[in-house]
Amino acid sequence: MPETSFSPAGRGADGESLEWLAALSAAGHRREDAIERLHALLLRAARFEVARRRRAVGVALDPGEVDDLATQAADDALMAVMRKLPTFRGDSRFTTWAYKFALLEAAVKVRRRAWQGREVALEDDGWARLADRAASPHEDAQTAELLGAVGRAIAEALTPHQRAVLTALTLDDVPIDVLAERLATTRGALYKTLHDARRKLRARLAEEGLEPGRATAGGTR
């Protein structure tokens, strides 16, 4: 990599961050040493995240798998950080900025590992379960009306693809990174589909004079 003079365009990087940037863009031993320190930092973050995620998703990993996943995540994060280095604006500390790459890589790997071998059934009629729920004696009248209206809106206002993505992400609890991998797309593209579907549902509810309360603010799992 050619030596570059960094001047982050954001609020102004702190001294420690500037030192990281200078070392990573230097030549020879100084750069090699900085990359080694950066990898150690990313590996620590990746181990931290693998431990958190495996507890959260309840996936059984032996110590060797934990180490493998964390090392792969740190390696991938190192490549991403070095590739994105010219875009660092100094809006946060360099280490905070770098951490997010390791956390992302580790979280995605654990989620995918947890779903390894599990089928993801894409069904555009899974929303029909809402009708059963709306008819349940456990629901109060207002909630039942809202659930029924959402079910109808899903059936009438969404495309089959939007229905399938909405069902997988919100009713079947498929992690968005897992669904993105299975559909050979990205988290961002899938979330855009979900976002557009949600806007259509809200618009349809508004047409019917229904206003979901703040209590319904929330997301997929």
Binding site: T143, V150, L169, T170, H195, P212, A217, G218, G219
Partner: peptide, 15 residues
């Protein structure tokens, strides 16, 4: 009630 609110929240997302 909370389960229904969570479900509707997941389906409808933030306003």
């Amino acid at each position: 009630s909370k389960r229904s609110a969570d479900l509707l929240g997941r389906l409808l997302g933030p306003a």
